[in-house]
Design a protein around this nucleic acid. Structure first.
Lengths: 296, 296
DNA sequence: GCAGCATGGTAAGTCTTCCTGATCATTTTA
DNA sequence: TAAAATGATCAGGAAGACTTACCATGCTGC
């Protein structure tokens, strides 16, 4: 019942009126003039009414054509808008990525990654939030964010994970601590010192060093409080190297050599659901960026 | 650069999500299932991104697809709206006609014409205004109205006229006037009576009866005033039969037989410009209506 | 007045697009 | 495990759209 109006013939009508003739329209649309004539004739047959006056050699709109013109113009404009937006979205010139990352990654890695990303894809909106590793995984699963960067704990059904880098665990203490200055440590050397647990301490679980955390009675989750404690010389703690804030002059990081503990940092996304173009671009960018950095 | 999005493939995408699958969409659109697959694939290639998840046997939108869906839906809805409105306008189910007519036609003929017209084309808006014959012609020329119904004076370049009916000129007088009751008159019989001129008196110009109006010293343009004068017995006048209001019981109309004077009532429209669908329908309706009435 | 140049319309041939019918690979259901 | 249903793929044919070439008409300038 409803005739299917194609966009091109409508564009022809607009071009004819705007350019003032069939020939001019043809040149403007990079078509031959008969193509324009035929498109118009076909459209007129579809509508059952003439759009242009016949007979006189000029291209004049009929009243019906005048009535149609603004509607056609609107529809074509709408089409072009959708086409343009869709194209931009598909080609990573627009869009939005929501990312979650563990605090260490968010503060140490993301700034560099995002700097180059925004310069490469200026149109993409980015939202970055941090949370501890389980929270990150949960947000990805629930779809609150498209990408998560966190420690890879155990493989989960609903998640697809890509390893990004290894982050070694070490001991953090004040620079006047007896252990400071060593270039590596055995876990047994820590016994006897006050160990402050933190959110990353569970990385020791399952290793010989788990013994240490069992005997620790201090737990500080907030990183700022933790560093304050360490700077005050209250005790020592274990941290992945990434989580260690180098800008604290009085603190130093000593890798744990025995057991050699690393946390695997990886990129999470929902399994089975493909990413939005913007997120896919971000994922690729993160991987490229880290691989590049590794090579340096 | 901008890909030309055709409406049908977009409709396919909507149908797939709404009907919950390619097969269901195919049935819904009266197409074969491969047609749907191919339309989607083509669209995806055009956009450079997938709209549906691949691999798992189900039709699930990708995030990009989800982003596109509402935009596609809007565009298709817009298309259908334009298509529907255009169709309605073209098939006389909607639209607008502006008409001008001389007062006699507006009050005596138009009511009957418009009654049947509005019942046949309920969607068409109508505007009717009256004015003397030259004004009607001017309004048509200026494009203020599309159609005019008036006395055909002299053919004009810018106007295309179609004769509709003949309207004979006669004498109007009070029922106790010596001339009342006659079934026709010779112009000479009027001499000696007080003749009141009116807007239609110039129809006598160029005929032997022109002599009469030259000696008349009363001119009344307003029809209500004129009839009041006639009812008061102040004098007689000449009028086309259509302009004679039969509902005035004390007035009677006597045709002028010598000279036999008629005014030609005709339909005017601008030359060289075709009518809007609604106006074309009205024009046809007016002609049909009067031809039908003539036959009765 | 007539040649030359513009307008748009028409016809035949070619190329592309779109659709169908049959068939396949995979997953879900009984 | 057989059967049914999903979507993907391929070959062939119908329909559309575009191009080249030509025609009819109206205006313009000498």
């Amino acid at each position: 019942m409803l005739p299917e109006l194609k966009i091109q013939p409508l564009r022809c009508v607009l071009a004819i009126t705007d350019q003032g003739g069939f020939h001019a329209a043809a040149k403007h649309l990079y078509r031959s003039q008969p193509a324009i004539s035929m498109a118009v004739r076909d459209l007129e047959e579809r509508l059952g009414q003439s759009l242009f006056e016949k007979g006189n050699g000029k291209a004049l709109l009929t009243p019906f054509g005048q009535w149609c013109l603004p509607r056609f113009r609107e529809l074509v404009a709408h089409h072009d808008r959708v086409s343009h937006d869709t194209q931009a979205m598909a080609s990573h010139q627009a869009g939005r990525v929501d990312i979650a990352a563990v605090p260490s990654v968010a503060s140490r890695l993301m700034p560099g990654i995002l700097t180059s990303f925004v310069s490469e894809y200026p149109g993409i909106e980015i939202s970055l939030q941090d949370g501890h590793s389980e929270l990150v995984a949960q947000m990805v699963i629930k779809g609150e964010v498209e990408l998560g960067i966190t420690s890879l704990w155990q493989p989960q059904e609903a998640l697809e994970s890509t390893p990004l880098l290894h982050d070694e665990i070490g001991v953090v203490c004040r620079d006047d601590h007896p252990l400071a200055g060593r270039d590596h440590l055995h876990w047994r050397e820590l016994s006897g010192y006050t160990l402050i647990r933190n959110g990353t301490s569970r990385l020791l679980v399952g290793s010989p060093a788990a013994e240490l955390v069992r005997h620790s009675s201090l737990f500080i989750s907030n990183m700022i409080s933790l560093t304050a404690m360490l700077e005050a010389g209250i005790g020592i703690t274990t941290l992945p190297r990434l989580a260690f804030q180098e800008e604290h002059a009085r603190l130093c990081f000593v890798p744990l050599a025995e057991p050699l503990l690393v946390r695997q940092i990886g990129l999470l996304c929902r399994a089975g659901v493909s990413l939005s173009p913007a997120a896919a671009a971000m994922r690729q960018h993160v991987m490229d960026h880290l691989r590049e950095q590794e090579e340096c």
